[in-house]
Computed example of a mutant assay.
Amino acid sequence: MSYPVALSPRVRAVLPGWHGPQAPAPTHQVPGAGDALERALGWVEGALPRFDPAADGRARPGPPGSALLELVVVLRQLYHQDLPAPLAARVGRCLDGAAEAFLRGGFRHRMLRATPYFQYYAWLVACLLDTGRLPAAERDALQHLVDRGHADLHNPTHPPHGVLELRYVLDLAGVTHRLPDHRTLYEADVLAAPLDPLYVTEVEAYAVTHVVYYLSDMGLIPLHSLDEAQHADCVHAVDTLLDLYLCFGNWDLIAELLLCRPTLGAEHTPRDQYALECLLLAQHADGSMPGPHFDPRMHEALPAERRADYAFARSYHTTLVVAMTLADRLYGQGRPDARNGAAR
């Protein structure tokens, strides 16, 4: 196994002992992965107020509720993992806090009224229903919006992966709809065409990981809905992108791509091991993971009162996906259907 020589400064910074492409491949075990997961979830629980769209009047990154949505999506995936009791309890407390944030004040009503944010509302409802944090009446409200056309489901300007996402989340919520089936949507998506690493954009890379997630219930079940050729193309795309973003040191996409591989039935490789060790070495002492836009020099140059906001906005998503990937590698392999644990 040879590793990429053209490593970015971001990768070199966390690999002071790396000696080039002839370095021996790491072993199958990743010492410290369990501790890293505990630190990451500890950081998430400590940062819960910052995910709340209504708390303390602070501006949140992205559209209203986007940080809360991303939190809930990952917590729901962790909820269905066979985690040790202390970690499962922490996930449960975080889900309780997220449900309170969703229901508090006028946030839920603002999501209900604003058509552009329908998908955010649908995600939050689906995940919180699936984890037992909302009453069934919330599903009825979501079904009412779909039935009345409020969701704008059949807008021809929606990209195929966006429609695939919407189909997945409505199916997860148990809402009836008339969207095309998975195969039709997949064949119109980014993965249906050959992927050239010289020209692929970051947006396309995220579209690849998200398509895999929507077809595999966020990595909780094996992906069986593709034919043999489509499956092979999908594995090749994920592997190509993992090589590419490992060179760049983009921990966010590395974590997302690593979660895709076992879902696709790909064997654990020395390259996977190398990528996991990179993630562990990049983790900050407080458990957070620096995102692609986190600049330590800028962070240090900010006034002390602004550093926490800067770090949260540029770290929370990467911390969440790394926690999800580590949990899957430690506790989620070999399950034919992780949602059998849904009653927990």
Rank of each mutant, 00 (worst) to 15 (best):
A40N: 12
D96M: 04
G162H: 09
T201G: 13
W43M: 08
W123L: 03
R344D: 06
P84T: 15
M324F: 09
A88V: 14
P290N: 08
D227S: 10
A40V: 13
P303R: 11
D171Y: 01
D147R: 12
P135E: 11
A151S: 09
G42A: 09
L276G: 01
V169D: 05
G62K: 07
A338T: 00
L83D: 12
A6D: 13
G249L: 12
A67V: 08
G42M: 08
A304P: 00
M111Q: 14
R307C: 02
T27I: 09
A33Q: 13
A285C: 01
G291H: 03
P31T: 06
Y245M: 06
H144Y: 08
G92P: 01
G92I: 07
A304C: 01
L129K: 11
R167F: 07
P160W: 03
A114K: 04
T176Y: 10
F51H: 10
G341I: 09
P156F: 03
Q119A: 11
E305K: 05
H224K: 13
C94T: 15
V73L: 15
A99Q: 02
Y117N: 10
V5D: 15
L170W: 04
L112Q: 11
L276T: 07
V91H: 00
G65P: 00
D96S: 13
M289Y: 12
V30N: 14
H150P: 07
I221H: 06
A173R: 11
L75P: 02
G105L: 05
G42S: 14
G97W: 02
A327Y: 06
D272G: 01
H182A: 13
R178S: 15
M324H: 13
G17A: 11
H284L: 10
Y316S: 12
L302C: 02
Y79D: 10
L220H: 06
F248N: 12
E202M: 10
L280V: 03
P9T: 15
A323L: 10
D295L: 05
M111P: 00
E277C: 00
R50P: 01
H144V: 05
R339D: 01
P262I: 08
W123S: 04
T319E: 14
H231P: 02
L215Q: 11
L170M: 06
H28Y: 12
D295V: 01
F51V: 01
L48R: 09
Q273N: 13
N155M: 04
T115L: 05
T318A: 11
Y206C: 04
G62V: 08
A282D: 01
Y79G: 03
V146I: 09
A85P: 11
T184P: 06
A282E: 00
E277Q: 15
L75N: 05
D309K: 00
Y214A: 10
L128N: 09
P61L: 04
L166S: 04
R178Y: 08
V190W: 08
V44S: 07
A207R: 15
L215V: 05
P156Y: 03
V30F: 13
V208Y: 03
H28R: 15
L75R: 02
E305I: 02
T269C: 03
V5Q: 15
Y206M: 10
